[in-house]
Design a protein around this nucleic acid. Sequence first.
DNA 1: GAGGTTGCTTGACAAAAATCAAGAAATTTA
DNA 2: TAAATTTCTTGATTTTTGTCAAGCAACCTC
Lengths: 190, 190
Amino acid sequence: MTPLVQYLESHFDITAPDDLQQISGLFKTVTLKKGDYWLKTDQYCRQLSFVKSGLLRIYRSVEDKEVTQWISAEGSFLTDLSGFLFQTPSRWNIQALTEVSLYTISQTDYQKLGTLVEKWHTLEKQFIAKCFTMLENRMFQHLSMSAEERYISFFEQHKALFHQVPLQYIASMLGMTPETFSRIRKKQML
Amino acid sequence: MTPLVQYLESHFDITAPDDLQQISGLFKTVTLKKGDYWLKTDQYCRQLSFVKSGLLRIYRSVEDKEVTQWISAEGSFLTDLSGFLFQTPSRWNIQALTEVSLYTISQTDYQKLGTLVEKWHTLEKQFIAKCFTMLENRMFQHLSMSAEERYISFFEQHKALFHQVPLQYIASMLGMTPETFSRIRKKQML
DNA sequence: GAGGTTGCTTGACAAAAATCAAGAAATTTA
DNA sequence: TAAATTTCTTGATTTTTGTCAAGCAACCTC
């Protein structure tokens, strides 16, 4: 569970060995094969995972097309945050794009963390707030930037993804068609 | 402070008179005149307000134009959530569009709530998570809907706003120009 | 109530992005 | 490795949205 422990240390500033063990002890290792679903629309999301390795796509089907909301990569948490916290049916599908290895905690065990780890509530709050902030930035980019500007901005921050997943998913995530994406890409590569 | 108390009861399920008083007792009444700023870009947001009456616009200036992020109305909380929680300089301007009456709590007093009210941490978490969920929905709409569809969806949920604030602000919030907004509007009214 | 300001609409045009269709390239599968 | 599938690219075209410019309407304000 080293990657998870490192994450907890660096992102949550949890350093006490006891706390680290309390937390990581509740996670179980899970693997998914390419194409497997971690979650499907209308299911209840009763788990929170930390991605040890691999890539997953979070998307939603609307009418005849699929809208990719995000791609989760190694070293980040994975859940349907709204569904997990409010226990409402999920609106998302989450599917493995590669072989995936996860550390997973059940909702029940997750709830124990509040009593086991002193400052858990604060950390949880910070985590959710961080998710909010990221989304706020993304929303702002959509309100203020063109497709090309969004492409450039995303490319600068996530270069690696561009040769790890089908580009159409990145296109969708950036709110454009694969064709538009391809044309911008060509222009950028000249 | 009745509107605030009602909000706490219905949205946060706080019913104990003691708790209600503990909380609302820390808020002070503040009024703003039309055009006054509640917050400016690069300032630290050290307050959380509840809008008793009036309307405020949250926006950001980019190059030569202004991007409206949201319009806050009567009966909702107002803050730069990211800035307030992480104590980072704000990227937003928040300006009164009308006479505004607020109940305001300082960051210092806000922090006391954790010790004064038993389940405060849970409620705070729920509140932030709610903000996240709303933003997630909005983001999804931008990824999956055209300008016209966004107009219709917003109009259905916020009819009242359309004759309360300059329409250009709503246009910006929906990610389109005033001209496009005007054309869609005309089409919808036929 | 005349003049100024601000906000809204309209038209003509330009640019951005979507759609459709075909084909090339890459990847997977057998 | 050949065939099948999936993904990406390209061109032609349409649709959507933005830009610019002008005019109109509402509303302050003096």
